[in-house]
Design a binder for these strands. Sequence first.
DNA 1: GCCGTTTTCGGCCCGACTGTTTTCAGTCG
Length: 591
Amino acid sequence: MTNREIAKLLQHVAAAYTIKNEQKYRFQIIAYQKAADAIMGTTEEIKDLIKEKRLEKLPGIGPSIRSHLEELIKTGKVKRFEWVKSGIPQTVYPLLDVPTLGPKKAFKLVTHFDLKNPKTVIDDIEKIATQGKIANVEDFGEKSQEDILQAIAEFRQGSGKTTRMVLPFAGELAERLLIYLKRSKDAVDVQPLGSLRRMKDTIGDIDFAVATTNPKAVIDYFVAYPQKERIIEKGPNTASILLSNGRQIDLMTQPPDAFGSLLQHFTGSKNHNIHLRNFALSKGMSLSEYGIKKLGKTHKFKTEEELYKFLGMEWIAPELREDTGEIELALRQAQGKHPGLPRLIELKDIKGDLHIHSNYPIEPSHDMGKDTMEEMLKKAKNLGFEYLGFSEHNPSVSKHTSKQIYTILARRKEKIEGLNESKKYIRSVNLLELDILANGNLAIDEKSLGELDACLVSIHSSFNMNKKDMTKRVLDALAHPKAKILCHPTGRMLNERQGYELNFEAVFDFCKKHNKALEINAWPNRLDLPDTLVRQAVKYGVKMVINTDSHALWQMDMMKYGVAVARRGFATKGDIVNTLPYNEFVQWLSS
DNA sequence: GCCGTTTTCGGCCCGACTGTTTTCAGTCG
């Protein structure tokens, strides 16, 4: 069972409890939802966590759910879950994926119409709604019948929040809306918030906060956005629209003197907010997007800094707000204790990009870059870098003899040396992105490797290996003295495929011991290492590099997204090798 | 069912909006 399937199962248990008796089981419902979130959020497999007795370390998983999951992995089912789900038709669960349908409505519908087939239940509901039969069911009406049809249609198209965007795409979309919203004369300040501000790797919907003294005017202006498909909801202070490209945009307003509270509230994450509100409660305060109520008086905050300070903690960078320990660190920081919050790496700390594909005619095994080395060096200088690492793919092994490969690389080395000697550009580093063959060997021989300063190594083939063999393959490749960086280490492609299996503890140990670095690849649908693994690498003391993997000039601007991943993983400047000045960097490269 | 800078027992975030209703339930973030 995958983590996703296990998380789904826990959500279904929560839904079943909701249907059975929401009041009686209200805390179990919260607990099961939280446990489901925790399992969705971890990169490690549940069966491994059980084997290593670390499952209860996940926040939200205690002795009870732990033992249920052990039973699940061992026998394939859980007695307690069967009991909770008894008497509830299987057809309820597929409907939960349709927006506006929750456990209660789904249950009412499938029992009223006696729907039995989970595989066709969405089609069945659609058909019944089209026939106008839902409007007659108690607690439903004409409007909710229409809403259900709408929701099913949009669900099928993957609209709204049913599919997620990769971060850079969401960034561009938000930029266009930001320009529109700022044109409203009633908008004093406009900020994109939510998971976009936290720079999460994928984004569901885009959230905006607006500071205004005239919320009605701002809301009316917002829902008149030209690319709007329809208004999802519209109230006096908030509204949601669906764009014609299927994306949902949420907007909230507050007066300028309470804007800090709104920024905090709408940035989230949900779990960060819940923790913060619980903490406030324990101090006799109540926190909401309006401010903090204390002894009957509501305190308003213009800025987030003032709000966090009022709670007795240091301001927390949005990238850290996932309730994974940042609140405790912010409290310690404010009290002058160590460790406090990490001093996170910033874009301006980056001194070079080491994963660059130029159009140098290297006759590669994979895709080639579009622009010349010279053009890319000029761009790198504009970005404020001191050095640039050329790392085209190795020449195709099947189409060349090793002698031909050597000739190509020797010529390329001369070219790069020429660029450096001309002194017209920032420093070039002579690297290469080498395929790791299925047997763990590098794609080119010793003589050719001698023509490089160092190399990056990557898995580009034979993904379907078991964890043990894949780990050995990677470590064998990294054992070569010239191999310094493991590229896009999990191999995942967001919204496309999961990565291959790798024993990251073993990889961390090896990298730490032999001074190798793991890449944080900033390519939009890679963002690999993922933030959770960055955090573990930081803890292990493993060095990382942040690269764009650019195949064209414009892609070199993606560095900020790689930096965001590093920040979400609590990385400081000291954890990232390409923050080093040139001389220290080349020293590391030959270490 | 989970969890601890008051606690291993006794708490558990806070609010917006909609539809179907005459005061609230359900869903969402």
